[in-house]
């Protein structure tokens, strides 16, 4: 195994380790149910997509 290949493998593993939790948190943040499900089945119609569902008369909260 060449040094460049070894470097790429180590960099990839460390990158996955450092970014993995953040990717999962980003994934579950667009979850439409209250329970956490990953990988998600469909993009939410509400939740973080709520802004698109604001009625024309303005928000009601």
């Amino acid at each position: 195994m060449s040094a460049a290949t070894l470097r790429r493998i180590v960099f990839l593993l460390v990158a996955l380790f450092l970014a993995g939790p953040l990717i999962v948190v980003a994934g579950v943040s667009v979850n439409e149910k209250q329970s956490l499900i990953f990988p998600r089945k469909a993009f939410p119609s509400h939740g973080t997509g709520r802004s698109s569902a604001i009625p024309a008369g303005g928000p009601h909260w």
Partner: peptide, 8 residues
């Protein structure tokens, strides 16, 4: 989250 059963 990463170690959970439903989203891990």
């Amino acid at each position: 989250t990463l170690f959970s059963r439903t989203a891990g």
